[in-house]
Design a binder for these strands. Sequence first.
DNA 1: GTTGACCTTAGACCTAGCTCTAAGGTTACA
DNA 2: TGTAACCTTAGAGCTAGGTCTAAGGTCAAC
Lengths: 151, 151
Amino acid sequence: MLKISELSAKTGLTAHTLRFYEKHGLIQASTRSESGYRYYNAADIRRVEFVKTARSIGFSLEDINQLLSIRVDKLSHSCQEVTEITRNKLDEVNGKINELQSMQQTLQILLDSCCGGPERAIHCSIMEALDKDLFRNQDNESALQASGRVK
Amino acid sequence: MLKISELSAKTGLTAHTLRFYEKHGLIQASTRSESGYRYYNAADIRRVEFVKTARSIGFSLEDINQLLSIRVDKLSHSCQEVTEITRNKLDEVNGKINELQSMQQTLQILLDSCCGGPERAIHCSIMEALDKDLFRNQDNESALQASGRVK
DNA sequence: GTTGACCTTAGACCTAGCTCTAAGGTTACA
DNA sequence: TGTAACCTTAGAGCTAGGTCTAAGGTCAAC
Ligand SMILES: [Zn+2]
Ligand SMILES: [Zn+2]
Ligand SMILES: [Zn+2]
Ligand SMILES: [Zn+2]
């Protein structure tokens, strides 16, 4: 049976975070001392480590709550339910990657178009691009090329 | 000279957002009526559109504040300063993409390892993987393969 | 028997970028 | 003159996941 600071040391999660997870229904100390101290048994600790692992993969606390309901009663749940949570998360991640890659491309095009030197910014092609609103449509690259600024 | 709701219609930003940007020093209505109504002239509008464009690329409001200081006095600033802001943003975006791609790979491996069917979740390899803490190191794929669950 | 390290709770604070509400003043039109 | 649609401000609320503080109780060691 570990006290909260011992569990904190074992898992790398702070005592604050452990209490926060408890407040959100993710974990629990199955025993409390008379004075109210939390004591975590082996099963409690495995559950905390499950949460930590799921969290490190990127699952939200809400996702993890669902995964935990499955975990405590695997007979009543199917692989399908587990993959659905996982696939939703993957879709979400892929969506974010797409957004970020679009930003990445635009930023790279901007960087390629600017000399980056110590010259005054009066004719800076990045500033021009931001001013000309070249990003109203998806065709950023050709718009920038049309502006004559891509090297 | 546009009133705030007209500028809102023109830019697609809400009046709330325009006031919010003003509070954060990004934009301004250079004229106010006697009763306090904001009136935006052509230069004000161009500035708002600059902000909108920069925002759509993913620059933070703080980034945009810096870009705007350059914009109003291009003689005192260099292309180098502009590319630095842009490169920092690109680095940040690349960092986030890397994190997300790592999540993506892990989620994909999990999905590949699970049958996804209506069978009970007792032997679900995703649940097992989360329970076995296979993600303590970076070598997720080989760890999962070692667990004998990758198809 | 007192120090110091631990534990408890409720609840405030943080980021970032909005989003909305309340309470009231202004303007345009019929 | 009324009323609807606008405008103003300050400030609260939202998301997600913590992070921290305050005020107080507990426990082990010296
Ligand atoms: Zn240059
Ligand atoms: Zn430049
Ligand atoms: Zn299965
Ligand atoms: Zn499965």
